[in-house]
């Protein structure tokens, strides 16, 4: 029991903020997995007679302009949010991890070249890039993922590069080298495990950002096609009728707020536990 308390999971469970975060995230994952079961209505079924219905026992979060059940659409939307967030973060994280380590280990010219790429990608405004790509590519989740990957891989790359640079000349690495450790051993046994901590903190912090980007693009009409039950599309539907039926936009914003809080709390809790300096300070 004492040993468990000193594991990362044990330490997280002892942190109330982390517990709240994990409950929110677990709730979202459950809703996404069980969306078909818990949805009281077909998310795409139109019912013009009941359109703009306020929240009620029949329609828990009311209906939209086409009489579609808002709760059912948000439940389905959680799948889209998770899909986009996990796919985009995994791809951009993987690219950033590889390029960051190459930059950290590579010769100076390669490091500078990759830094230039990171800075260029980071400097490009997400929405402007999204607008440009939306004009060139078909609307859909893959376009959203591409936008997020292009604008966020550099963040991972920079973090991993910095970590790699500081580690590669650390005494224990030099000692390993002196003992004849192979390059692969140094990378996979020493550098990578030490890089993963900050990497996962960044990934956790980025998940809600990605979800918000998807919602933002859909809100602007450059994300998923109309009819797709993404959270951003629900916000857009709600905005169009905000004067008369504010519950649609309120319901659309609620999961975004919760998920942003959940992943941000988790990221902060992870940082508190994985950053040695912060742990010492406690």
């Amino acid at each position: 029991m004492t040993a468990f308390r000193h594991t990362l999971t044990g330490r997280l469970l002892a942190d109330p903020l982390a517990v709240v975060a994990m409950l929110i995230i677990a709730g979202m994952v459950m809703v996404a997995l069980l969306a078909d079961v818990i949805s009281p209505h077909d998310y795409s079924a139109m019912n013009l007679v009941d359109r703009f219905s306020p929240p009620s026992a029949t329609y828990w979060l009311g209906t939209d302009n086409l009489g579609r059940d808002t709760f059912s659409r948000l439940a389905q939307g959680s799948r889209i949010a998770l899909y986009v967030a996990l796919t985009a973060v995994t791809i951009s994280g993987a690219i950033g991890l590889v390029l960051g380590m190459i930059a950290g280990f590579g010769p100076r010219w390669l490091d500078n070249s990759l830094l230039f790429i990171f800075d260029t990608a980071r400097a490009y405004p997400t929405i402007i890039l999204a607008l440009a790509l939306a004009a060139l590519l078909p609307r859909g989740l893959s376009t959203v993922v591409i936008v997020v990957v292009i604008t966020s891989f550099s963040e991972y790359g920079r973090v991993v590069r910095t970590q790699t640079l500081s580690l590669k000349n650390a005494e224990f690495i030099l000692a390993e080298r002196a003992m004849g450790a192979s390059f692969g051993r140094i990378v996979f046994h020493h550098i990578l495990p030490n890089v993963l901590g900050p990497f996962f903190i960044l990934a956790a912090m980025n998940l809600p950002v990605v979800i918000t980007i998807e919602a933002g693009m859909s809100f602007l009409g450059i994300g998923v096609p109309p009819g797709t039950p993404s959270w951003g599309a629900t916000l857009k539907d709600g905005f169009d009728y905000i004067r008369t039926t504010p519950w649609i936009i309120l319901a659309g914003g609620l999961p975004l707020i919760l998920v942003t809080l959940g992943f941000t709390f988790l990221g902060e809790a992870l940082r508190d536990q994985l950053d040695p300096k912060l742990r010492k300070g406690r």
């Binding site: 607008l131 078909p138 609307r139 009409g221 450059i222 096609p225 009819g227």
Partner: peptide, 8 residues
């Protein structure tokens, strides 16, 4: 099956 493409 109708796919909707939205444009500015």
């Amino acid at each position: 099956d109708l796919n909707i493409s939205v444009h500015e």
